[in-house]
Design a protein around this nucleic acid. Structure first.
Lengths: 244, 244
DNA sequence: CGCATACTTGAGCGTTCTCAATACAGGTGG
DNA sequence: CCACCTGTATTGAGAACGCTCAAGTATGCG
């Protein structure tokens, strides 16, 4: 399993950071070990002791917490180029599970090996830490949404965020993209029930913001309206890159 | 303003990490520059370019986002020993504001100087990064609460979390502590209105979970009940310390 | 004593949830 | 190629939770 598929993490790093060609190669080499994960399987389990990090190369995944009563909340939607579990490097155990939402390909990076690279390559360490802080900023933004925004705004905001992030790794067409999530999964992201998400989506379809795409997938159409509804500004995603 | 007040960050680091005495001294020396901040004043402003980090030495503060419509959401409640803005070290601008909720004392750590220490003292760098990841875990836990828990559970969970964190820096008595937050501030933490928080607190008082303390402060009394109500488990706070 | 701030309580409304029934699409096996 | 089965989407009705608006009451501070 030593894949040679295009690595979307490289795309992000080239665009957002000032790593040299050699440093990029070091990162790319760390991602040689590739594993396929079928939809709905776990990539990492809550509570386990992390021995490796996972870079999502293809497909969609999510970080999740399952509550005592069985309800589920996603704390991050992961797209190609995302590190599924950066904190595995530093924390003693996983605080969340990572689950594949579609069939996925993940690079499995050995933890000890990565720690080693940290010693030798301070720039790489800095970049990965930076990525963690961007994650942090995304979490903060979501807290604001979940705490203070109504249903329509939450969903619109989610769509805008995903669009922006997909663009960085060239996975969104201009003004539209396919969403491989079920309404239940959207609900578990934005803190609503699937029934209510359904009603909101109906309304959004009626207003021409989204429509049904191919293969039972939702297609996001009118970005500017969505941005208006959710007062979306991408600054928290730090798309302009690292502070040099 | 070169204070010599006991530094609660030291307490945390001694307890949770394996820094040597010399390393601890280095951190303590970084905190020599102390500034008093009156209640309701900003410690750091959203959107600004960070030039220093702030360690909360005394008082309570919070990270906040203000939304277009004027509503406010806190993403973290800060108590003595907390770093108000760790990501200031890595990100190009503040994604949130930090506001003093009571009169505060903060150590102002020069960013460039800290980056310098990062080079020379890898252990300190590791520890600060670890603290950032614990922050991250707290954000994730809050997302789950905001997305999936009802009012009573959210408030109870907040109280349990605060209790646990206060204990680490010796600021909670056994089974009780004083809360210097207004009901409005609690509301902006748990994503409710102050009116509804009031009603929930009434219920909690009636059930003997909390009572009115001195000086208009709320006093948290029955910890075990609160833990039951909110299914609180402190594992996400990583109170057992760093992975060695 | 008077002001400002926070807390308290009620009434009515709106958003979101629950429960439940139905429709639909895609995949599987006969 | 059809029949069936499963998971997802859709829709309705009613209830619950939390919000808004508004008035009134404490409390601390100057």
């Amino acid at each position: 399993m030593t894949g040679r598929l295009p690595n979307p993490l490289m795309k992000r790093l080239r665009q957002l950071t000032s790593l040299t060609a050699e440093e990029l190669t070091v990162v790319e080499d760390l991602c040689r070990q590739v594993r396929g994960v079928p939809a709905h399987q776990m990539i990492a389990s809550e509570g386990a002791v992390p021995n490796s990090l996972h870079v999502l190369l293809d497909g969609w995944a999510a970080r999740q917490k399952i509550r005592r009563d069985g309800s589920r909340q996603f704390s991050a939607i992961l797209i190609p180029g995302d590190i599924c579990d950066i904190d595995a490097l530093h924390l003693a155990r996983y605080d969340y599970g990572v689950v594949a939402m579609t069939d996925c390909k993940v690079a499995v990076v050995d933890r000890a090996q990565l720690l080693d690279v940290y010693e030798r390559e301070p720039n790489i360490a800095r970049v990965l830490t930076w990525l963690a802080f961007v994650d942090n900023a995304m979490l903060t933004a979501w807290i604001t949404m979940l705490g203070r925004a109504r249903a329509l705004e939450r969903i619109s905001h989610l769509f805008c965020e995903l669009k922006t992030r997909l663009e960085i790794v060239d996975l969104a067409e201009k003004d539209r993209f396919d969403l491989p999530l079920t309404q239940e999964e959207i609900a578990d992201t934005v803190g609503l029930t699937s029934v209510h998400v359904n009603r909101m989506l109906r309304q959004m379809k009626d207003e021409g913001l989204v429509r049904n795409g191919t293969n039972r997938r939702l297609m996001i159409v009118d970005e500017s309206q969505l941005e208006r509804i959710s007062s979306f500004t991408p600054s928290y995603l730090h798309v302009e890159g690292m502070r040099r």
